[in-house]
């Protein structure tokens, strides 16, 4: 079960957030609802600290996921400082393939190659173009680990 999808940018801001309700298509008003909440800040803080720790432990040691009793966080960080995060239940395996698709296919085509979308997000700006939102929903809900 995949619970939520987050993207943080190089300025440490949450530029995308999407919650997925269980077993039914989530309504569009759960998009970008939690970007400024404490949950976002805590999540980012945790990822940030753990990434730092990983690379201090050894060179090129990249944080990929971490797990608690109930949840698992899957992470993809690009060299440009974008952090793609999926939160799932604790039993889900490796979602790196899905994270790569979200970046290399979806983000690339609907944000980077979209002349009407910014690529540098100022404070408070979020991703809200429908091609991205719909594309992300499709990729995530069609993933084997979604339900």
């Amino acid at each position: 079960m995949i619970y939520s999808f987050w993207i943080f940018d190089r300025h440490c801001n949450c530029i995308y957030n999407r919650d997925f309700a269980q077993h039914k298509p989530a309504s569009k008003d759960t998009v970008n609802r939690n970007n400024d909440k404490d949950e976002a800040k805590l999540l980012f803080g945790a990822i940030f600290s753990m990434s730092r720790l990983s690379s201090k432990l050894s060179d090129g040691n990249v944080l990929q996921s971490f797990r608690t009793g109930k949840y698992k966080a899957h992470l993809k960080e690009t060299a440009t400082g974008l952090r793609f995060i999926l939160i799932s239940d604790s039993n889900v395996g490796d979602l790196s393939g899905l994270l790569n698709q979200l970046y290399s296919d979806l983000y690339l085509n609907t944000i980077v190659k979209n002349g009407l979308s910014p690529v540098d997000f100022k404070e408070g700006m979020v991703i809200k173009n429908m091609s991205f939102i719909n594309g992300a929903d499709e990729l995530i809900t069609q993933n084997g680990d979604f339900i």
Partner: peptide
């Protein structure tokens, strides 16, 4: 075909007509 404004469909159309 990749143009998609974060401000919605109408803005996408406006921008397309104006610039592209």
């Amino acid at each position: 075909s990749r143009l998609d404004s974060p401000l919605g469909v109408q803005d996408t159309l406006n921008q397309t007509r104006k610039h592209y």
